[in-house]
Design a binder for these strands. Sequence first.
DNA 1: ATACATACC
DNA 2: TACTGGTATGTAT
Length: 875
Amino acid sequence: MENGVASTKEEGFLSRMALNDNKAGMEGLDRDKINKIIMETSKGSKFYENELKRDQQVNQRITKMMLQKARITEQQLKKAQAQVEKVATALEKSRDLSRVIVHVDMDAFYAAVEMRDCPELKDKPMAVGSMSMLSTSNYHARKYGVRAAMPGFIAKKLCPSLVIVPLNFDKYRAVSNEIREIFADYDPNFQPLSLDEAYLDFTDHLEQRQHWPESARTHHFRVRDMTTDEKKAEPSQEAVTEVRELSPVLFEDSPGSSPSPVGPEGVRAPAGDFEVFGTSVEEAVREMRFRIEQKTMLTASAGIAPNMMLAKVCSDKNKPNGQYRLPSTREAVMDFIQNLPVRKVCGIGKVSEKMLNALGISTCSHLGQQMALLSLLFSETAWHHFLEVSLGLGSTYIPRHEERKSMSTERTFKELSKVEEQLSLCRELCEDLAEDMKKEGLKGKTVTLKLKNVNFEVKTRAMTLPCAVATVDEIFAVAKDLLKTEIENESPQPLRLRLMGVRISAFTSLDDKKPLQKSIIGFLQSGKTDCSSSSQGMHQKPGNEHLSDVYSFHTSPLVCPLVEQKHQRQEDLPWRSKQRQTEGSQVAVGLQQSFFQRAHVRRLQLEAANAATKNEGSGENAPVIANAGTPAKASENNHLPPDLSETPSPVQAHASTSACAESETLTCPVCFRKVETTDLNVFNTHIDQCLSNASQKTNNGTESDTESESDLKKDREERAAVNKLRRRHEAQEKKSKVNPQKGQSSIKKDSVQKVSLIKNDNKTATSQEPQPSNSKGPVFVCPVCQLTQETHDLAVFNHHVDLCLNQEVLHELGRQTSSSINLSPVKNSKSTDGGHLQLKQASKGKSKRRDTPSSPPSKKVKSLGPCNTIDKFFR
DNA sequence: ATACATACC
DNA sequence: TACTGGTATGTAT
């Protein structure tokens, strides 16, 4: 009985409280003993009580699920099975084993950095964090059960000799920048997941690499006297690889890197030695890890697989200081998946694991076996994700780093019950947040207040304003109001808080509207030139044209682009200088050469203009968005009146913010003058004017004007349009996903409209006639190719439309290269059968990953022929 | 749009 | 003494 698998309450609770030995470094320790200590230390605390409560909630969910399961009939199950199989077949068809995805992960990152910098720590169990919370621990400490996300005081119980080192983020960031520079050499579009982790697409690099001379694959050992380190850093029992011997930080229980061909003789020898790496993936990855270690004296582990999901699992396999490659064959993948615990899969956490366990599912093969059931018990997104996991599918392209969607600050403290203190804290948080917002030049419409009381109960309260805000006063006006409401609701009891946070979201900057679709048409028509953002050639070091980050080609076309620019330059840039192509190449996707040529010229002009103005000095530190005055009302908010009735109401908050245009200026990146507007269109026009002036060598700022469509502006719009198209393309599923059972009218509304615009054709995609062959769903007509899709599965249909759209764009771009683009399925359905089932990949239940097992748009475009123009341009 | 939960590092 | 902080996303209402 699957039900038999369900554990007792206590055991179940353990899964929440106890350490998961899921992670590396936890082999063969006394789990029971450790858990006992953890439980005993926690017992009776508020935290513990709250965890118990949350666990009950999960149990209830499970109970509900089991009831639901009990009601499922054979018939339903059979039908579900058919459905699942159909989707699975389509998914299978979309399987793409052609990419080589690498996930790199530094070993015990923070701890390793601290050990590196303080050799005394090397042989001690240590962790980074505080008595309240640890961020990570070294492998020595892990043997005691001490690990990340464990409070320090519990860790101390487990390991009294544990040394706890406080966090030093600046240091980690610095190291992170170093490793990212290396990442960029293998994939300029790599995606960092955190300071110590990234996904890389090695495919292009490997192709290049085949033709590289040995000299390009030769890397030297660190030239420096680490001989002392070397000698004593190895109490190792099984040290084998040269890399490990170099590391001052390594661990005794490394499983060792898998395919690590013995290095050349004399590897151990001191400075001056080198190693030549081969051309295979393994060699390339080994080389990358080698370089990381030489550069930072820290080790990394890596996973190599045909998609991101698998790569991530693989990187864990031979951790620390190892790598694992999963061959790109279906067979190898399926074998690998079979006994993989579901918990190992990114996106399946404690709760999902527990729910699955209740159904008797603990490995991925179980997942595959139970898909019919799962499709009836879980949401569509969830079961699609499960299905993909069970098939070993995952994203085969690495999405660009998306724009941020929210920004927040929160703080935990000793109980805070006094209203004034709460208000003043709230204000402080708002100040911090506003500062951060300023750094990135963001403005958002939704302000969310987060409260956690001393019982660990969390509450969030949000309010959305008609107008985006960013300043302290604006944010505080809202947050304070939300807080007051909560205080009032609770009164006469005080709010006994242990945490408060403020978040702002619904940013306008990047999204900043105004329908640009119309320009897509012209845009697509005008471009005839081959463009590619293929990462070829990017391994050559870019020139140091730092200024070449032309404003208008950065993230946001329609927002004061300078804002971001300046700040990234300070913080982010070391690796970005190579990596920025991320955005650039996204941009490049739809751009015809003429655009680039024009843009390039303009970039040069801009640089000139910029340099000129910079010398005048004013530009450097000038705030980008100057707030040239604070509304009188806001200053009133500066006080923290304990008397609640005295503070403005939300309505007033609106009022003050909707007047937000009132005293703001934007600073022009060219003339560095303030432009008295908050209207980005006006501002853009101003910049256009400035730029065209600059090009005439008249380096004059101008007042805002209405000069009709300068090229730059057009470019900006075009770019925005294309980006938008692509973004929507990627996002449409989320938004327009329709539960087929619920109704079909809104199916793919977004894309339908979009496509209609592109094609200037108002035919809609959906037909309301029921499908004769299948009572279940509507017939779908592809809005792009106009062919009826013989499926009632929305996912399948969506996928078709995606591919079609993609093809459409490419076609419009006049690509002869479409042959290299792997669009055959669409072609089939377009020109031949039309009955080919395509599957639109469900947006995963996973965070951050919108996986598309088949080649998604960006990659396809990316695989177009080379286009040096772009590379140079963005360099 | 809001609230809450889950997940990840 | 005592259980983070930041971000994204999914689910339900």
